[in-house]
Computed example of a mutant assay.
Amino acid sequence: MATQENDSTDIEVVLKDLKKIMNSDCSVLKTLLLILSVFFHVEVVVTASDVPNVTIPNAEYSIWSGSAMTLECIIDSIPNHTDVYWQKESHGTVMNITSSSTNVYGATVTKPSLTITHVTTDDEGQYICLAVNIVGTGKSNPTSVKVLGKMFYIFYSDEAY
């Protein structure tokens, strides 16, 4: 029996959410691709979708009351993240912090780090950064913020009056 070869001998295998489909075991995938490669030219395009990987590099911050402070947030996300927000836990209460919250800058898709412009003792607590994509929400490990007492300025002049 003769087979007719056509131009569509290439098979494109697109693997979405590879980690979930293969349960983190790529040996089954490799075996399948090896078998297919015997009969066809196989082109593999891997799109590993997952919740965003969110990192805060510093485990703790100490800052003087009245100062400005930036909590750094690094996000690695495929597919791209579409939202960023922070949560602060203090005395058993969790509060969401977004770009529209007062006294803060950042917490956006393009600038996920959180800057508090005028730190007070109310800002003390545990903070996490969260990023959202179509797969779900990724969150960082917590970072601790300790607010030190108010900074005082003392001016001294040795001029006699």
Score class of each variant (00 low, 15 high):
Met1Pro: 09
Ala2His: 11
Thr3Ser: 11
Glu5Pro: 03
Asn6Leu: 11
Thr9Pro: 06
Thr9Glu: 14
Thr9Ile: 09
Ile11Met: 10
Val14Gly: 06
Lys16Gln: 13
Lys20Thr: 14
Asn23Glu: 15
Ser24Cys: 10
Asp25Phe: 07
Asp25Leu: 10
Cys26Thr: 12
Lys30Ser: 13
Ile35Leu: 06
Ile35Ala: 07
Leu36Phe: 06
Val38Pro: 04
Phe39Asn: 12
Glu43Gln: 13
Val44Asn: 08
Val45Ile: 15
Ala48Tyr: 09
Ser49Phe: 11
Asn53Val: 12
Val54Met: 04
Asn58Gly: 02
Ala59Tyr: 07
Ile63Ser: 06
Ser67Asn: 14
Ala68Thr: 15
Thr70Pro: 07
Thr70Asn: 08
Glu72Val: 07
Ile74Gln: 09
Ile78Met: 12
Asn80Arg: 09
Thr82Leu: 02
Thr82Glu: 01
Asp83Asn: 00
Lys88Asn: 01
Gly92Lys: 07
Gly92Glu: 04
Gly92His: 05
Asn96Ile: 01
Ser99Lys: 02
Ser99Thr: 03
Ser100Asp: 15
Thr102Ile: 10
Thr102Gly: 09
Asn103Cys: 00
Asn103Ala: 03
Tyr105Gly: 11
Ala107Pro: 00
Thr110Asp: 15
Thr110Asn: 14
Thr110His: 06
Lys111Gln: 15
Lys111Asp: 15
Pro112Trp: 04
Ser113Met: 06
Val119Cys: 05
Thr120Tyr: 05
Gln126Tyr: 13
Ala131His: 02
Val132Phe: 00
Val132Gln: 03
Thr137Asp: 00
Lys139Ala: 10
Val145Ala: 07
Val147Arg: 01
Leu148Ser: 08
Asp158Met: 09
Tyr161Ile: 02
